[in-house]
Design a protein around this nucleic acid. Structure first.
Lengths: 212, 212
DNA sequence: GTCTATACGCTGATAGAC
DNA sequence: GTCTATCAGCGTATAGAC
């Protein structure tokens, strides 16, 4: 009997199994609706192991958070090191986020969607984490290089990535039914070109439409 | 002694006191980090009252959620009934959101920032609620009327409001230090004009290209 | 309707064998 | 390092007096 139990466990290391299980459960039910016992069961380990490796549920969440952030940051770094315009780098980041949202949904959901302040009170908010700083940095350099129109960096970054991030939220919430990748080209077009028709733009911020 | 206790309570009705207290606590600490006792204490009522009026903590959260959504929807309706272009309606909504973020922060934080699925599992996500549907509807009508450039309505709505919503999140997280209202004009400019410079694209701010 | 006191279940965490 | 058994505390919910 014990043999069966010894042989069924997956070959992955224990830490990895715990974090994978925790990721899935946290995303599906939310951190506070998951107990240590749930993680233990799903990961096929004992409670003791979880406390040994991570010191508790919060420790798992923390380790998982930083692990994913680091992976994300490394991918951003790769993009930065490539020989591209700043604008192309922004596009590449959006592509990356869209692809991950489809293929590894829970990773994106945990990083972007979760309210970490609720269970990791001491951690800075996700928007001030390294990868997001890097994204804003790309935008700032793009402005300096004249590739991106002049203006406040916060507004610029929010405008450029805001639409894409909004699409991701809608997709994660199940409101958008089609894969994000099918929207990629149009999202890029909109974020650089804006939403104005010639009709509206040519008459600027004044009263328009009255003449019809 | 009991007289002092009977006289200190505020003149507001009990339901209102409970919801106000709950709103502040939920936003500050997160739903799961607030107990019924916390709400009871802050609202100066007894636990019994909370269960009598709302049936429990989740009931308070639910009532509060729908109350705020309804208020928000009513303001959107007002904007819709005014005589404006669809584009101006979008601008007005952004102005409304920015002002509320500054003057009544917790309301916006609870509506936009909270993960309702975690504590209201049966409710549809915020993005599919009536006010958000109304916002998308305005965008769709703007496209039909030729005020907003042709394209997928989801992408259009995400592009138009995504930047503003992103700014709100950054502000709520304390990353942006200045009041959002000071960014209003620039955000509007960006969301309609896009972020491209002449260098990168053939179109230009203020005067549009004619290359088809 | 409002309140207090109490009961019960769950969850996080530990101790100690292997 | 891994596991099981167990504890202590908290938080929800109820019962019953006023």
């Amino acid at each position: 009997m014990p043999y069966l139990n010894k042989q069924t466990p997956s070959p992955e290391p224990v830490d990895c199994r715990i974090m994978t299980a925790a990721l899935d459960l946290f995303v599906e039910r939310g951190f506070h609706n998951v107990s240590v016992h749930d993680v233990q069961k799903q990961a096929n380990v004992s409670i003791g192991s979880i406390y040994n490796h991570f010191g508790g549920k919060e420790g798992v969440a923390k380790a998982l958070y930083y692990h994913l952030l680091k992976e994300f940051e490394e991918m951003i770094e790769e993009i930065i090191e490539e020989d591209m315009t700043y604008r192309e780098r922004c596009n590449k980041i959006v592509a990356l986020l869209f692809e991950y949202t489809e293929s590894r949904r829970n990773i994106i959901a945990y990083m972007l969607h979760a309210k970490h302040r609720e269970f990791l009170p001491d951690e800075p908010p996700i928007c001030s984490s390294t990868p997001f700083k890097s994204m804003r940095s790309i935008v700032e350099q793009g402005i300096e290089a004249g590739e991106i129109s002049q203006g406040d960096p916060w507004v610029a970054a929010a405008t450029i990535f805001g639409g894409a991030i909004r699409m991701i939220h809608l997709r994660l919430d199940g409101v958008i039914k089609k894969p994000l990748t099918s929207y990629y080209d149009e999202v890029l077009h909109c974020m650089w070109q804006g939403m104005s028709t010639e009709k509206m733009v040519s008459s600027k911020a004044g009263k328009v439409h009255s003449t019809g």
